[in-house]
């Protein structure tokens, strides 16, 4: 025994002035608009999600640290290695070295000193050599060093395994 259900086609569809029909059309329009709006609200973020972001992938273990020609011999630059700064150094002889730029003492950002040919932390005069070894001042540990790969015009830096 089926109860409480009205066949949708039971109403007289030929009477456009039927108040129930007008209500029904209103419900349908409301529903249609709602469905459409929610569909847009759901599909829009998904479509945006599908677009690959411009920023380099944080999950990757190698990042683009610079370009060939950007660094003169005997100079250095800070690059972003994941969520931390890294230091790319071009030695006086033209070699590339890369290491973490976070001083192991109090986490200041280190820099390359052209006059000393060494890596220097301005906060407490900590010195590291170009292999990241702490050679003077308060730093207790060497800087983590990274592997440098030159691929064409690009200089990539990756974590040593």
């Amino acid at each position: 025994m089926t109860l409480a259900i009205t066949d949708p086609d039971r109403e007289n569809p030929s009477d456009p002035r039927s108040p129930s029909l007008a209500r029904r059309r209103f419900a349908e329009i409301l529903l249609g608009t709602g469905f459409l709006a929610t569909a847009v609200a759901f599909v829009y973020p998904v479509l945006r999600y599908l677009i690959p972001p411009k920023a380099s992938d944080l999950g990757s273990d190698s990042v683009l640290a610079g370009r060939v020609g950007e660094l003169k011999p005997n100079s250095g630059k800070i690059f972003r290695f994941g969520s931390r700064p890294g230091l790319l150094v071009r030695t006086a002889s033209g070699e590339y070295r890369a290491m973490s730029a976070i001083c192991t003492h109090l986490s200041c950002t280190v820099q390359y000193r052209q006059d000393l040919h060494e890596v220097w932390c301005a906060c407490h005069n900590g010195l590291y050599d170009l292999n990241g070894r702490n050679i003077s001042g308060p730093p207790p540990r060497p800087l983590e060093t990274f592997e440098v790969q030159v691929r064409g015009e690009d200089i990539y830096v990756r974590r040593l395994k």
Binding site: V46, Y49, P53, L58, G59
Partner: peptide, 27 residues
Amino acid sequence: LYYRPGANEAFESVQYIMTQVQFGWLI
């Protein structure tokens, strides 16, 4: 689409989804 399994990458890839990918945080 963005997640990578692996001890070295998993956390970073989820972080990437949360911060870099548009609406990644939402998904």
